[in-house]
Simulated scan of single mutants.
Amino acid sequence: MAFSLFAKRFGYDIDMKENKLAGSLNELSGKLEGKPEQNILEQQAIRTMAKAKYTTEPEGHYGLGFSHYTHFTSPIRRYPDMMSHRLLQHYLDGKQSPEAAEYEDKCVHSSQMEKRAADAERASVKYKQVEFMEKYVGQAMDGVISGVTEWGIFVELEETRCEGMIRISSMEDDYYVYDDEEMAIIGEKYKGTYRIGDRVRVLVLNTNIEKRTIDFEML
């Protein structure tokens, strides 16, 4: 529901009916292609979904709408792919099903390692973003608010897709307070409001490669 409201701020409607939701999300993906808000909405959708995991339990595939599904990728990229390929050969050779517990342990391990790999990937991407943005310090750029917290506003630049933060403490035109229900910061005196999805213009204030941070200033 939260993501549906979030998408509506960009002018997109999502059908929340159980039998329509998967198709509605796929349709949204097509509409977003090439739009400035594509990355923000796709990332927000991923964050709101339950994280995928490897398991021997027949849980189907929500996005595809399949009640039965097995992970299988070619060419081989991950150990779970190799497990699927070996099991297929095992069955083609006419052998009986192996113990599920042994494979469930491997599934749990693979899920944990994939999370570590994803975390490392995000950290490396952020590092290169900060490195890239060093040459833009002092320049004004357009962006979209991608996140709001009690200590700052995250902004994704439209031109480079790099994300940085405007610290609330640096916004001196009013005293801003974070509103969790509105997912926004609101000025106490002048009631100026900044929400996820708002387009803003910022100054690239500085970068810190060691902390992997990019600081912006609201213009």
Rank of each mutant, 00 (worst) to 15 (best):
T56V: 15
K126R: 11
L64T: 01
G94R: 04
K95T: 07
S110Y: 07
A184W: 06
D180L: 10
L32N: 05
M133E: 03
L21C: 02
A100C: 06
I76Y: 07
T56Y: 05
T193K: 11
P36D: 06
R167V: 05
Q96T: 13
Q43R: 15
H71T: 05
L28I: 01
N26E: 07
S146K: 01
K115W: 11
P36L: 04
T73V: 14
K20C: 10
G63A: 09
S110W: 06
I196M: 13
I185N: 02
D93R: 10
K211F: 03
Y136D: 09
Y176S: 00
G30W: 04
S111D: 02
E59I: 15
E33T: 11
A184K: 07
M16I: 10
E156D: 07
E150Y: 11
A50H: 15
K20Y: 09
S97E: 15
G187Q: 03
L87C: 00
A100S: 11
K189H: 08
G65W: 09
G152L: 01
I186R: 05
G197T: 05
R201W: 04
G147E: 08
A101R: 13
Y79H: 03
S29A: 11
L157Y: 00
N19H: 12
D93M: 10
N206Q: 13
E104L: 02
K31Y: 07
I209F: 03
V202G: 00
Q129P: 03
R9K: 12
V204M: 06
Y175D: 13
M141C: 06
P58F: 07
E159S: 13
L87E: 03
T70L: 12
K31D: 03
S97Y: 14
Q38F: 05
T149E: 05
R167L: 14
G11Q: 06
A45G: 10
L205G: 14
M1N: 14
R86N: 15
S169E: 11
G11T: 02
G138N: 04
A118R: 15
I214K: 03
A117H: 11
L157M: 05
A101L: 13
G147K: 07
R47H: 10
L25G: 00
A120W: 07
E188A: 12
K135E: 12
R9I: 00
A2F: 08
E121T: 13
A118L: 10
S169W: 04
C162K: 00
E131L: 08
I153N: 03
I196D: 05
R212W: 06
Q38L: 04
P58Q: 12
A101W: 10
S24P: 00
K191M: 09
F72R: 08
S97T: 13
D173H: 12
P80K: 06
I145C: 02
L32V: 04
G34N: 02
S29H: 09
K17P: 01
M141I: 10
E27Q: 14
E102M: 14
L5F: 12
M141A: 11
R78V: 06
F154Q: 09
P75T: 01
S110I: 06
E42W: 08
G143I: 00
E159G: 05
P75R: 00
L219G: 11
